[in-house]
Amino acid sequence: MTTALSAKEIVSKLSAEFPDAVKEAGADSVLVKSASLPAVTEYLKTADGLKFDYINYITAIDYYDYFEVVYMMTSTEYNRSVTLKTRCETRNRPTVPSLAGIYQGADWQEREVYDLMGITFKGHPNMKRVFLWEGFDGHPLRKDWNK
């Protein structure tokens, strides 16, 4: 059974390593400051006893006030999963650091999020639309699209 690593456990490990990275610990997810996301992920991927080497998905949710970007990682070795979240408060050109350098699987998924939700991933090697054509008006998964 893939057990979700409890947020408490993660937070305790993370706060030792990155004192001000964790903003908030939900029931089964950790809200991370967007600036420290790559470092946290790198740590989660490589640290002993964690080894979250497989990225399940990257997605984003539009809550009107802010965008929430959700990452879920699984450790195939320990069969545990973790959900990371980060937020960007602005609706105009929201930006989150890219994880494409850490997980190759993040590459296209970040492009997808950019395409449909309009969140730019800083440091992504090829930040282009993936499904819609260049010049498409707006980002359709935003709640205010076409309203």
Binding site: Q104, G105, Q109
Partner: peptide
């Protein structure tokens, strides 16, 4: 409110 599909084919193509 939001539904994200983790589509296998898309990610396998990476």
């Amino acid at each position: 409110y939001r539904c994200h599909i983790r589509s296998t084919s898309f990610i396998n193509l990476t």
